[in-house]
Nucleic acid binder design. Structure first.
Lengths: 258, 258
DNA sequence: GAGTGGTCTAGACCACAAC
DNA sequence: TTGTGGTCTAGACCACTCC
């Protein structure tokens, strides 16, 4: 079976069927979906594809970029272009608004630090942070308030690497996220955030802090802030009363939004 | 002040400081961060930038693409390139694993349909779906089970547009996601998923369904499946016992992963 | 009509991986 | 050494927006 029979020369030009690179991307996508290009195998080289489709290599590269953005394929210098998934539908890899509130709500609310004290890492906390037990970190906790409201928006507990804390520990309230301040002061850059959301029933202590009845529901959001090398610099745990907070996000398919 | 004084000609070439387009992107990013290019204003045209930096327009376009992937700028044909945000750090727009489990866990678990019946949309449900009250949809509900386990993984209630349901309503169990089946049968494509996560306290009915004590915590995940044109085709509400489920995601900065 | 970003070409050299 | 994808050039035409 010749490759021409599978990727027949394009019968349409840009004027008819949209941009060439999209037509080529769709053709490749169909051959991946059909199994003609198996997951794990390499696509034909860019040179072969440009010969085969009768277009420039740049146009083939644009088609490949499109499929890479959909996480259907990946490319590595000196190796080739590898098929990563048969079906873009299974991935849903791109999120648009997921953590926008990570920075957003921090600017509408004020975090009041009620308590600061050093803690020695051990057990689960040390494991979560990926740090040796015995290391001393700093723990800040307090309510986050919305302007003009009486009951807290959430109760936040933050663990900080003491060496990076700088003068964070001296402040009593924050309108900007703590991790942003540490980024600037310590000249580091958070590369990713590992987030975990769980449901809780409020015990007496947390219920009092949030001014809600004990036994009512709350959403607990834990976030590990990770810099280059996989090092965790901060862990924040926020407890939100269920009647004041939902975690909302929009997940888009493909990378069509760019 | 001449623009040359702000974007001085590049003193380094590719050999020294990495790819030209990245050097240009970083220079533009600095000028955006400093406020030299204000949010809402237009960057110099691609032609001007290629003149100014002494590179080809294609190289400038690669730099611009890089910043677009970070959502710092956007481009519109016939208009120009607009500055969207001063700081990439505030966005965290890309998520990697957020909803992978959307397809993932559905393949490890089995949804058992215990109840199917038509429902007439009204009130909050009609509003959530963005459909007129009075329309008749289909409601499926039942437990999702993990192989070899006795207690349900979650209890799922799914609302379906009856016109798209096809023979979905006749099946009694699913190992693949329902929305994937509808996509194939109705030849539509889900473009985005709007997701909302909340904490609940289990009432008697749900507690019995999940084989958990009444008064314990649960995570409620609601998902609206949206096709082109913003039309909602499905709403799923899953109730997970808090002791068996956490919602985990990793959020990465920039678009460096492609 | 003038100017913008979007697409496309036909070359070229490079860094990297495999043999 | 050979071949891969990554980068880059100097052109070109197009669709779109605004005047």
């Amino acid at each position: 079976m010749s490759s021409a029979s599978l990727n027949a020369p394009l019968p349409r030009l840009s004027k008819n069927g949209g941009p060439l690179y999209l037509q080529i991307a769709e053709r490749l996508q169909r051959n991946i979906a059909s199994g003609r290009y198996a997951v794990g195998s390499l696509l034909p080289t860019e040179h072969e594809l440009s010969d085969h489709f009768g277009v420039s290599r740049q146009t083939v590269r644009q088609a490949i970029l499109h499929l890479r953005q959909m996480r259907l394929i990946s490319a590595r210098k000196g190796i080739g272009t590898r098929v990563e998934a048969r079906d873009a539908g299974a991935t849903f890899s791109h999120s648009v608004r997921s953590l926008s509130e990570l920075a957003q709500y921090a600017e509408e609310t004020v975090l009041h630090v009620r308590d600061v004290k050093p803690v020695v890492l051990r057990g689960e906390l040390a494991a979560t942070l990926g740090r040796p037990a015995g290391e001393t970190w700093l723990r800040l906790s307090g309510p986050r308030m919305l302007p003009g409201e009486d009951a807290p928006f959430c109760w936040t507990t933050t663990y900080l690497d003491r060496r990076l804390a700088g003068n964070v520990s001296t402040r009593r309230s924050y309108t900007h996220p703590i991790w942003r301040q540490i980024e600037q002061e310590a000249d580091i850059r958070v590369r990713e955030v590992r987030q975990s959301i769980a449901a809780k029933v409020l015990g007496r202590t947390d219920a009092a802090r949030l001014q809600r009845p004990a036994g009512s529901a709350a959403l607990e959001i834990s976030r590990c802030y990770v810099i280059d090398g996989g090092v965790v610099t901060q862990l924040s745990i926020s407890l939100h009363p269920a009647d004041r907070f939902r975690y909302e996000s929009v997940l888009k398919r493909d990378c069509a939004s760019i």
